[in-house]
Design a protein around this nucleic acid. Structure first.
Lengths: 331, 331
DNA sequence: CTGTTAGCGCTTTCAG
DNA sequence: CTGAAAGCGCTAACAG
């Protein structure tokens, strides 16, 4: 392995001088600089990352912790993060939190192999985050509410999302609106449900327990929920807590010859790519993921620089109007 | 910061003993072991990654280098890789090659911040890979052919893909078959085209230059290509080099009231999620991505262990038959 | 079974 | 403007 010493020897200078040159310090004469650079390139010198880190105490890289890389949710977010991180001269790596305590993600956080983290991974324990953040390691959390001096939240407001989705349906004249849950235990599902409730109450509409069904955020779940509705009583509209569920709900309706939106209106949530292509094109609610990613990146960089930031940032969802909802004139 | 020395002091032993305990060496008495463990947990000791790496000369992590994290192609591949990497006790991080020379990926490879790499990123130069591999750094390349002692290829055979797709159409009785290119410069496009040619020749069918159109692997490109065919002369079948192009091609046909597969048969390539949902459901060719990812992981691990491996592994594509092709009886 | 010792490769004062 | 020297935190011989 070629080290800084080899370069120094070849250039006829001290290793410290080489270090200065390579790190762009200005206290080196142009002549020496050239000698060093020549030697380095001749020897194909590359610095050893770990050694430099050990000394410097930072890695110039930030970690994005995700729990499922293949989710489309993640990929949009990451695009936003990436653009600002790179722009500020930091590197970015993404780590999987699969395996919890023993995951790559935990290790990278614990062992300070990164300078800061952006986490979107429910299966990472608060405890780990809290402990890591204590020691001046900034973290931006995007999948839960969690605060301390070194942790800030960048969230998309699911309660607001549930509210506007329901409100949208209400404004179109619907009064019997079913809500198809995602996973019960997930925060975002719960919040959307609360938004749903708030909109209902505000409009003076009673919630009907039998119209709160579970769809587990899966295709199968969405299908079953729709089928249940069909076999019992059909509401005038149904709000699926995710597009994926909504799309298979649509399938169930079609199979049972119930036309959307004529007989039942449907809205989804997420605005996944597919929702544009199904029949009828699905009206849904878009989360500003790229924006959220960019914001998260910015905030983390600011924290890294020691600037003060808010402890929480909340973004709103936007309606993407397509053709799965009809205006219901009162009978 | 809590170091190994602090733990040693508290436990009343030497720091080397602490190191042994923490690294699971067996030459420590149970009593000392306990004392050390207690002290470590009391002090919330965590090892400093960089220091350990510096000494040990390896990181126990392998890097997956991709050029676009949001591509669905990548996400399936990565799932395969991940499962075997984790299984063997290595960590996995994914790095973006955006920015070429200055990308996170290049840095991680050059500075040996990872023990080996799996690359699927056309914008990483061969030179970088070749140089890194020289110094006993194993690399599995999945997006090109590139070999040396420490680089092996795991590829999906695009030539075979182009061949079977064309052959499929030929077997269904089609004799006039257009080929819609992806990006001209990309290997996979070229190879698919060569496969197309081979199948044609084998069947004694002449290639017609005007039926080789460029679609750039984009939606827009697919649409334009289809439109061009419509406005000039319609072949009996068209082979789009990607599903994305094929799907917008389908759109173009629909808009011009040309029914698929009655008037023209269509096949795509990739088997993306969407292709199942469009109308008519698209017949396409599936690349065994998860398998390829797993294989790549295995091979890399073997190389890391110093075992000998083949220099190249090639996987085949499989037909996913749906409804966009009809059997053409000769007139 | 335990402790001493000698670095890994790099950066950074601090004198020359 | 340049170089010598002192470690960063950890590991791996090697003695005791």
């Amino acid at each position: 392995m070629i080290t800084i010493k080899d370069v120094a020897k070849m250039a006829g200078v001290a290793s410290s001088t080489v270090s200065c040159v390579l790190n762009g310090k200005d206290n080196v004469s142009e002549l020496t600089r050239q000698k060093v650079l020549d030697a380095a390139s001749k020897l194909k010198y590359v610095k050893h990352g770990a050694a430099s880190e050990l000394k410097r105490k930072n890695t110039q890289t930030i970690g994005v912790i995700v729990h499922d890389m293949s989710s489309p949710y993640f990929s949009e977010l990451v695009k936003g993060i990436e653009s600002v991180i790179m722009h500020h001269g930091y590197d970015m790596i993404v780590c999987n939190s699969l395996g919890g305590e023993h995951s790559t993600a935990s290790r990278y956080i614990r062992e300070k192999r990164i300078d800061g983290a952006i986490v979107i991974a429910q299966n990472i324990q608060n405890k780990l985050l809290l402990e890591a953040a204590e020691s001046g390691f900034p973290i931006v959390v995007m999948d839960r509410e969690l605060n301390n001096d070194h942790i800030v939240n960048v969230l998309i407001d699911d309660e607001q999302g549930g509210y506007v989705a329901t409100r949208y349906l209400l404004d179109k004249g619907h009064r019997t609106i079913a809500y198809i849950n995602g996973t019960f235990s997930s925060d975002c599902n719960l919040l959307r449900y609360q938004g749903y409730l708030r909109a209902l109450h505000e409009a003076g509409v009673e919630e009907r327990k039998e119209w709160r069904l579970s769809g587990h955020f899966t295709k199968e779940g969405g299908y079953q929920a729709a089928k249940f509705l069909i076999e019992n009583e059909l509401p005038s509209a149904v709000f699926f807590a995710s597009d994926e569920m909504a799309i298979s709900g649509l399938e169930a309706f079609r199979e049972h010859h119930i036309s959307v939106p004529e007989q039942v209106s449907v809205v989804g949530f997420d605005n996944i790519h597919l929702s544009h292509y199904v029949y009828p094109p699905l009206t849904t609610f878009r989360q500003p993921k790229t924006d959220a990613g960019q914001l998260a990146g910015h905030v983390l960089i600011q924290m890294l620089k020691g600037e003060t930031v808010e402890s929480s940032y909340i973004l709103n969802n936007q309606c993407v109007e397509r053709h799965s909802v009809r205006f219901k004139t009162s009978v």
